[in-house]
Amino acid sequence: MLELLIVSTLNGVLFGMLLFLMASGLTLIFSMMGVLNFAHASFYMLGAFFGFQISRWVGFWPALVVGPVLVGAIGAVVERFGLRNVHRHGHVPELLFTFGLAFVIEEVVQMIWGKSPVDFRVPEVLDFPAFTIFATNYPAYKLFMLLISIGIFVALFAVLTKTRIGLIVQASLTHPNMVAHLGHNVPLVFMLVFGLGSALAAIAGVIAGPALVTQSNMAALLGPILFVVVVVGGLGSLSGAFVASLLIGLLQTFAVSVNVSLADVFAVFGFTPGPDSMLDDLWRVTVAQIAPILPYLLLVLVLILKPSGLMGTRET
């Protein structure tokens, strides 16, 4: 039991940190534009494919740097020449623009790399068990993923809260006009934030690519969860995104290991539905089986009980 607890915690924290890498960019971009960026998970996918391609040519480590830089540049270009023009027409066109962009990126990825998974492998230096707890190996690569995510989280927080650039960015997010009047180039800040957010998602893509599966539907698999994280954490709140990422990572991982069903719960109170009762199937569904929908259940609950999210300041 203790073994399952510790291993699941490790797995959950890892998944949570990976979610945070993406959610942090998404939530920053939201604070800035005021709309959700539907293409955000697509930048994550681009990161994974760029990482795969570049690591084919020059190895994994250069790919870890070059991939996100390229994707960040693409993100900046998208903001400068796409979103900035659409922005004039209001939020709905912006939303539609990012929505369309997600499809474009998916199609382009399919055209270049095909629809089936590509063979993106863990670099050999990291392909060994890092440590063993209760006879379960923890792969070094996962440890590496965890460290990178934590490192980026710390760096991001430090930059945003402790540096002058961070102050300007934060001020631009909430009071763009005032910051512009003080002589700062606010559009440039927006472009950089969008680029940085995309690059963060790309880093998540490069490091998650070998561990998960690099294929053209990976954006679609992760996208919805990302919105759950951002909404649960509170739109625009970085610390909220952090808490929500960990919460959902742990929730999903632990739910898998719980075998309790409604029937079991009621059995405790001495009530057992007959095997022929109409809801028999429903009674016997275990928590493990519904693990994938739990985050969405949480989303609904948060929207009902606290629409601003756990740490958000504005209404969603």
């Binding site: 039991m1 073994e3 399952l4 291993v7 699941s8 797995n11 959950g12 998944f15 006879a135 379960t136 561990a211 998960l212 599966v213 990976m218 698999l221 999903q252 991982t253 632990f254 898998v256 290991s257 493990a288 089986q289 994938p292």
Partner: peptide, 21 residues
């Protein structure tokens, strides 16, 4: 006795932890 969603799981680590336990 486990059932998991079809072609949706990208990391089976939680399931393996459970088998191990």
């Amino acid at each position: 006795d486990e059932l998991h969603p079809l072609m949706k799981i990208t990391d089976f680590a939680p399931y393996i932890a459970k088998i191990k336990a």
